[in-house]
Design a protein around this nucleic acid. Sequence first.
DNA 1: ATTTTTATAAAACATATGTTATATAATAAG
DNA 2: CTTATTATATAACATATGTTTTATAAAAAT
Lengths: 190, 190
Amino acid sequence: MGPKTKFTREQIIDAAFEIARTEGIDSITMRKIAEKMSSSVAPIYVNFKNVDELNEALIERIISISRQLLMEENSGNPFSDMGNASLRFAMEYSVIFRDLVAKNGKYMQDYDEKMMPALIEEMQKDPELKGFTVDELKTILLKMRIFQLGLSMMAANGSLPKEYKKQDMMDILSSTADDVIMSAKIRKGF
Amino acid sequence: MGPKTKFTREQIIDAAFEIARTEGIDSITMRKIAEKMSSSVAPIYVNFKNVDELNEALIERIISISRQLLMEENSGNPFSDMGNASLRFAMEYSVIFRDLVAKNGKYMQDYDEKMMPALIEEMQKDPELKGFTVDELKTILLKMRIFQLGLSMMAANGSLPKEYKKQDMMDILSSTADDVIMSAKIRKGF
DNA sequence: ATTTTTATAAAACATATGTTATATAATAAG
DNA sequence: CTTATTATATAACATATGTTTTATAAAAAT
């Protein structure tokens, strides 16, 4: 029933991901993928109807990797976990991170909106955050999501101070979280 | 000495900018520019050696517009002015803003590094910020730059809450600035 | 008035890229 | 062993795009 398969769907996605990682998603071409696998473009078209379908598979792969990074974080503090996972992704896959943030509000947005309710729930359990209304918690969360995006973006762009290491980034993230929460408490009169 | 010029360098940059504004910088092509001007590509090559030179001119135009936006802000508070200018740019030219942040750490970076010393100086004059060391001021400034980038990015991506207007964005920016400064004071024992 | 210069248009050229068609050979089915 | 299937390579095709060439006409210089 035909010769043995030499190039699998996964290998093709691997090659595409590697190009995206180093040169950016827009730099992917069928011929480049083939070259990276030392094949022709034929195996690609056996596994994918066209370039759009391949891109979908690539996005899935990227999402799966980001999910993996998040699962590897387990401090117990979901804020911190999401911040660290986001930072790690932004640093390890900076080109892709920039592409995603710039091009696709969509995926990020869906992802965020899916996480929001769970995060609010987690916050409500946090003794540190007792006494806040849901609206107040939402504001705190929004501020932190904004800061986290800015921080990850700067990390990906290399526009943080040169001496900044990952730990410094995590520190400033956590310090700003403290700022926001402490100020919210003071405003409430705690 | 030749027929009257029908298409000036400025008109060409205008057309390129309009394409960048609506479709993104990468979507600019010589033929699209020509079509927008109802000309052939010939006038473009009279005014620019090649596409790289045109892109340089476009970047200059973009920088000049962002400078213009900043000059139009004059609250007296340089923080607030930069934040508002950044937000306005992100909202009015969201596609270009995303392109710039994603592709060109370079320009943004040069710009930021040029502004930093002036901003630190302004902060030292602010009575609100009396008593902080330069390093402490730098940390406050960094936090605010990070937040501002995240906020502008979210504004450009439309990923802020739907009901958020520009005023709400300016409010949350200013509120977070308060958070950061208030917390810094408390840490110092003020 | 003639010539020269040059802004523009139109077409051609070179290259890149997605996609499809064709040929080949390896494997399974009979 | 023969045939059918199919994974792969190669080449071809269609389109997009940067750039150059050629032709034309308008303005200036002579």
